[in-house]
Design a protein around this nucleic acid. Sequence first.
RNA 1: GCGGGGGUAGCUCAGUUGGUUAGAGCACCAGAUUGUGGCUCUGGGGGUCGCGGGUUCAAGUCCCGUUCCUCGCCCCA
Length: 415
Amino acid sequence: MAQLQPVRGTHDILPDEYARFRHVVDTARHAAMLFGYREMATPIIEFTDVFARSMGETSDVVSKEMYSFTDKGGEELTLRPEYTAGICRAFISNGLQQHVPFKAFGWGPMFRFERPQKGRQRQFHQIDVEVIGAAEPEADVEVISVAAEILRRLGILDKCVLELNTLGDPESRVGYRKALVDYFSAHVDKLSEDSRRRLEKNPLRILDSKDEGDKKLVANAPLIEEFLTPTARDFFNAVKDGLGNAGVEFTVSPRLVRGLDYYTHTAFEFTTTMLGAQGTVLAGGRYDGLIEQLGGPPTPGIGWAGGIERLVLLSNPLPVPPRVIAVVPIGAEAEAEALKIATELRRNDIPVELAYKGNAGKRFKRADKLGCFAAVVIGGDEMAKNVVVLRDLASGAQTEVPRDMLVGQLKRLQA
RNA sequence: GCGGGGGUAGCUCAGUUGGUUAGAGCACCAGAUUGUGGCUCUGGGGGUCGCGGGUUCAAGUCCCGUUCCUCGCCCCA
């Protein structure tokens, strides 16, 4: 701790930014609710196994990006790097099998030990939508529709494109994987160093390599489409048809793959070109084998996560500032009366700014800086007449208002 | 983990071939204005020049290390 700074890759969210942050969460929660999703939360820490078993031991996230530690009781714990595994664990822990399809919305901080970059922090935040216990392509369509609706409401849907692909069922994938390994192995000498490593670990990943040499090879690589079983093909077609009916535009990206092991069938990403290297805004897919891998009964699932910081970077809404009233006492004898007025207004849902000290000039200056739109002035003269002076801070116009009519008057102004 | 660019006041930045006490604008505080804000004027508080070491009579300035930020690779939301 050289200086009193936040830990690398973390940052403080100050009120102005937090307003935008919360706008994203509120918008997402509301849209999800419209589709019947209910908000829930899972712990930020889980047993390390929850992530290791679900995401795959060899994935980059598990192998080198997790904040893992042994607690004082000797348990191996991890700060969650993503949301899906925790929700699936909760589904098993709480015996939610009886409630399928279980539709959940959640949000919160995630942690990954990565090199910080624009749109990439070590503590970052995601909104998350999951449907557990639905094997039907209709669920895929719905989950993607929720995402599109959120982006539309945030005003950023037209800054994104929805890329869609299928990874097939396990059977399709085995055949495809073998074909890819065969193809790239025949051209190892032309592969980039990174991709040679991927050839062992995760050959599908070569498909979205950014290396120019790799791209040429990828252009002629076999496509998943040729290896889809009839079941997988029907499923993908149903998803595409459904999205068409739901009015969600997409493009099929045959080379879109997923980094985590648990995905099957549908994979999708809303991407943008406006965030530099971190172009993925919201992404997800189907994970039919995940619950079983975690030790639960075979249960299909599908969901996505969206990076809140990235959504904030893309959206530029101006959340309406609260319409605050300043109460300004004049003279020491009015202080107590001002507090009474402020209390009454607040009980009537009128936000009030009451300064702790200062003469009238100071208090008006402060009211102006805070963006108050009106001031209630109370002094000896007003107290004698049982009125207050209501000053419109934009025009400077003042009127006397009887004390007992103040709330009603302000309510009208607020509306 | 790898590579590029940066770090001077709360913010945005100046700072000459190394040379007295490191500056500006904005912001902040106070006064002009102890019953009335925005404009104006006057004054004021604020800096271990990211940190550590080295060269030098002398370092914000040159050298080395380190840390943090930032952009890209990687990975991913």
